[in-house]
Structure formats: C-alpha cells, structure tokens
Amino acid sequence: MRGENNYIIETFDLTKKYGDILAVDNLNLKVEEGTVYGLLGPNGAGKTTTILMLLGLTEPSSGKAMVAGYDAGRNPLEVKSMVGYLPDNVGFYNEMTGEENLIYTARLNGIAKDEAKKRIRQAVERVGLREAINRKVGEYSRGMRQRLGIADVLVKDPKLIIMDEPTLGIDPEGIHQLLDLIKELAREDGRTVLISSHLLHQIQQICHKVGIFVKGKLIASGTIDDLEKQLLMGEKPEIELKAVPDDENLVKLCENLDGVESIRRKNDLLILDCLRDVREDLVRELHSKGYCPVHLCLRGVSLDSIYLRYFRKEGEYEGHFS
C-alpha cells in the first residue's frame, strides 16, 4: 500500500469547513517516517482539526489524509491502531486507578491480557509513574496525568505519536522531562512524533522539521535552517559582534570587510548590517588581527523570531496569540 516515498503522513488538499468558516484550507502536509515534526501555529489555526482528520475522527470536507499508507477517512481502524493520540489536556476516568485506565485502553486495542500487563509495566516505568499507578487518577496532578497519557499512548506501541499541545500547563522541570522522553521515543524506538503547539521555544529543541500553520494554511515547512533561508531571502542579515579588545581598530576592521554595509553600536555590542552572511570571513579576519570574538550571532534566526515574523507577514494574527 505504501508509496515509494517514506512519508508516514501525507495529506492531499485536505480541507475542513465548519459552516462558512474554513478551519483547514487545502493542506498538503508531509511528515517523513522517524522524524519529530512540530506543527506550530497560534490558537485556532486549525491544528486540532487537522489532527482529528488524520485520525479519522472528523471527516474532511474535501481532500484526503493518508497515514502510514491508509486513507484515514476510509480505514480509520487501521490508522487508529497504528497511531497514538495524546489529546490536549488529556482526561482519564477519575474513579479508576491509573493502571485500570491503561488496562481499559489495552482492551480497546484488543491486546491480550499478559501482553497488556507487560506493556503497561514497561510504559509506566518509562514515564516514571510506578509509585502512583495504583492510585485513583482523581488524585493525580496535571503533570502526572500527562505522563499517564504518554503511558496510555505507549501501551498500544504506535508507529506514529500525535501530541496536541503536550507542554501546556506543565512546570519547566516537567517540560524538560517530557521533551527528553519525546526525543527518546523518536531516536531509540524509531517512532514518528507529530507535535502541535503554539509554544515554539519548547518545541524547537527537539523537532527535526517544523511547519508553520496559520489560519488553516501551512505557510512554511522544513528544517529550522530551511525556514531561516526562506525567511532571510531578500532581507539583509544583521550580525551581533562582541570581541576583545574592543577598540577603534576593531570597528575599522569590520567596516573594511567585504559585504558589510554599516556598523552601529548597541550597549557593548557591535551591530553589523550586511549584504550577506559574513560570519566566516569576519572570524578569520578577527583571528588574523589578534582579536578574539566572544559573541557572534546572526539575528532573526531563532525559531521564535521566525515564527513572529511569519505571523507578521501574514499580518492578520497580531495580538491574537500569546
């Protein structure tokens, strides 16, 4: 059933309309197997709707979503048996213990009893809930629920894990552990992970590729470097420099460098407006003249600034996201 490419998720002009509102607009999303893909976008961009269509839980208005070679709309059962879904603010049955909740999931997946026990033990160990697993879920903290949610996903041993806003409402330490776990799931188990989020600097560290999703449209997709190139095309790069010793000759040296247009000073930093990325030449030059660079940065390349800039380009979402 699989095509020659190794995309685990591939959508073809996927569209969802709620009345007159276009929630997802001709989406062509491609996610390669074994990667961590970050779907970034402000609230209400259509991320959750897209995920529900990938799982076959919502019917697309037009287009189709292929997941692991199956049409999610036509064969939802095959898709759902391979995909683990961690919903935004995941819920469990409060009057049951963590383990009972996981057993229910295993049963719904038709996993045999012994196998289910083994998998549950492993999953619980992995997310670090061993002590709490026999307590009622009603007593769990939000972070523990989230970890139980991941254990719940792991019980079905999925090829693809979809997480909707997994870092929301979790303390920094918890987020750190969560991101490590996600990295591990991708790297060691070879699972594909799709993360939807509006908090990029958290996701940035672990995603191989990101897609920026605004108003139902994927406006950019690729590695962070790709996005940088796409974004910086036609724009002049700025370089922040701090070097010792910081004297007049340093400024002169920079001015004379080919490709540097002008120089400003901001606090103790030199800002170089350039025509191209001159970092390599600059460092070489500094080195040969006995200067030592202590800070060098190409501005506007963190995902945060890319993200902000994309939304600014769209121009319609300012003030709408936090």
């Binding site: 529900l52 799982l55 839980l57 059962l77 095959e78 759902k80 048996s81 995909v83 683990g84 879904y85 919903p87 603010n89 995941v90 819920g91 469990f92 049955y93 409060n94 999931t105 719904l108 997946n109 038709g110 949610g149 719940d152 079905k156």
Partner: peptide
C-alpha cells in the same frame, strides 16, 4: 466533560 471521549475514540474501535 472528563475529556476522555477523544482519547477513547482514538483507539481502534468503531
């Protein structure tokens, strides 16, 4: 209310 609906329905059941 308990937000279990989407989790349960994302399991391979009709």
């Amino acid at each position: 209310d308990r937000r279990t609906l989407s989790r349960v329905l994302s399991q391979p059941i009709y």
